[in-house]
Simulated assay, not measured.
Amino acid sequence: MNIAFSPCPNDTFVFHALAHGLIEGAPELEVTYADIDITNNWAANGEGPEVMKISYAALPWVLNDYALIPCGGALGRGCGPLVLTKDAATAADLAGKRIAVPSERSTAYLLFRLWAAQSIPGGIKEVIVMPFEKIMPAVQNGEIDAGLVIHEARFTYQNYGLHKLADMGDWWETDTGLPIPLGAIIAKRGAVDHKQLTEWVRSSVQYAWKHPEASRDYVLEHAQEMDANVADSHIELYVNEFTENLGEDGYEAIRSLLTRAAREGLVPEFDEKLLFAL
């Protein structure tokens, strides 16, 4: 079975057992490591492997062709994207400014746009898509006015001397009371037994929790020179109860984010029933 997910610690931690033949009855995996912006585009174009990790923000474009697998992904609390600036600032200071984001089909981008519509009078001047690892240096050197950051940048932005203007997670959770939908596991309809895949992925999550040291070398090998303590913090933050099972709150968070975004014209309208259709 072919699968694509990111080299980030939460993904390698979750899929370690499945990728290493440790889940009974599961097929051998052919793994492609790819940034989520790449898999978002693959899914939108019907390309790439039959199983992929994409952003929840990309789901409305692909739900007709891919099913949402109710485990293995990333939702959570206290783990939202951050808006960073070089100097201390307020939301009003971003009016008419240039902001870098890691993708236009990311939950981070949707949260930012929904937050900006409420918080920045007059709006922003320009949104620039930039690889996430280049955003903090670009804010630091003044190339852009502010940056929206994800992943381990939550733990490292102080190293660049940057200031946190806003936490999109805090805003979302205060506004809705729901967790933040970040990364989804999807599988091509008709290409995979989705219920069986769900069992394999959930077993891989449970194995990871039961044997946390088993995946350590694998995680650090793909962690892009990330400090081991940062990798552990990353896993602790993004691998949680919703990774094992979306549950009612998980599905409601996804529905709420995507229906709000559709009303704002940020994503296409979609059939909500497809969120639950394996």
Rank of each mutant, 00 (worst) to 15 (best):
F270M: 09
V239D: 10
G183N: 14
A92P: 09
R154K: 12
E47H: 07
L59Y: 05
R263H: 04
L148V: 14
P60M: 12
D232K: 14
A187H: 00
V139Y: 00
A117N: 00
F270H: 08
E24L: 15
N64L: 13
K164N: 14
L59T: 09
E133Q: 10
D175S: 14
A187S: 01
G177I: 07
E30M: 13
S6M: 08
P49M: 04
L63V: 05
I235D: 11
V149S: 07
C8T: 13
S215H: 03
H211L: 09
H163R: 15
S119E: 12
T107K: 02
L278M: 09
P9R: 03
A19H: 01
V205P: 00
A277D: 07
Y218S: 08
R260W: 11
L266H: 04
D11R: 05
H151Y: 08
L22P: 02
G48W: 04
Q224H: 14
L197Q: 10
T90L: 10
D167T: 10
I185E: 10
G21H: 11
N240V: 03
S106H: 01
S55W: 00
I135L: 02
W42L: 05
I235E: 13
L148T: 00
K97P: 05
L278P: 07
I36C: 08
D35F: 02
I135R: 01
M136Q: 13
A223F: 08
K53W: 01
I38P: 05
R202E: 05
E126Y: 07
H222G: 10
W171E: 08
R154V: 06
E252H: 08
M52D: 00
L22A: 02
G73R: 00
W171H: 12
E213M: 15
Q140E: 12
L111T: 00
P268G: 12
A57I: 05
Y218H: 14
Q158T: 12
G247Q: 01
E264S: 14
A191E: 12
D145T: 05
I254N: 05
D170L: 09
Y33P: 04
G265Y: 11
G72W: 03
N229H: 11
G161E: 08
E269Q: 04
I144Y: 06
T198Q: 14
A89C: 11
V205G: 03
T174K: 06
W115M: 05
S55N: 14
A26S: 06
D87Y: 09
I99W: 02
L94C: 00
E199K: 09
T156L: 15
F15E: 06
L84Q: 12
Q224T: 07
F15L: 13
I185K: 13
F13Q: 00
D175Q: 15
V62P: 10
V139P: 00
P60S: 11
G21D: 05
K86R: 13
P212T: 09
G25Y: 06
W200H: 12
N141P: 01
L246V: 02
